[in-house]
Amino acid sequence: MSQWVIKGLRTGIKSTRYPRTIETAPGMSPGLPVATRMSPDMAQMMVTRCPTSALEPAQAGVDVNLRRCIHCFRCARGTDSPMEWERERDFECAGVTPNSNDHDRRFGPAFSRSIHILVVDAGDCGACLNEVKQLNNPYYNMHRLGFFLTPTPRHADLLLVVGALTEHMRLPLRKAYDAMPTPKRVVAVGACALSGGIFGRSFMCAGGVGDFLPVDVEVPGNPPPPLAILHGLLVAAGRKPPALLYRRAEDSTEAPG
């Protein structure tokens, strides 16, 4: 057994320093489309390219609804792709919903370093779930920030939902939420949980969990990288300011491409 101890020590510390400092390791996040100023013609072309209507035409250019973006890169690749992509701090993208301002949904001081999370997969493709799992790997190690996965909703403070909410998962998700003690918050992770993603609204999928549960924090991405989920958790805990999920071209500082 000692070989494992030695191996563990040899490996050293792998954990990111985020949120103390920003993480910049390559390949850790896919980036996000940036609302860009551009001509209406261009804008129209971009909008038709997007399979999930994440891009919306606006006066100044193209607005981006991050809830819908499924990271297909169609607006980023190709010969004529004026859409900017944000590649630094882009993972700090979790936003909040109006729900999260309710007084009785806030976590008191007792929760500042200990939040127990129940993960429910309400029907995703497995990528989001895999990224949630990565939060426990040595690189992200969410325990150091006081986040723990819990086996039962009885001990859970936070419900982390991934997936587009299938018909079959409605009852389990409802039961899990109801079984949690208050105060409790809901973090929806991934485009599918926010808007249905590519699955959209159908006979099986509800097009996101927002209509079904009072979601507090929304983490965009398809899948959101682990750090984005971590940011979402920090936002839910009130330890990080939220980001905007709907980004307007007119707010963009970028010059037109």
Partner: peptide, 12 residues
């Protein structure tokens, strides 16, 4: 005090 039924893993 809130009373909830036994946690059953979400089955019917």
């Amino acid at each position: 005090v809130e009373r909830r039924t036994v946690w059953d893993g979400g089955i019917r």
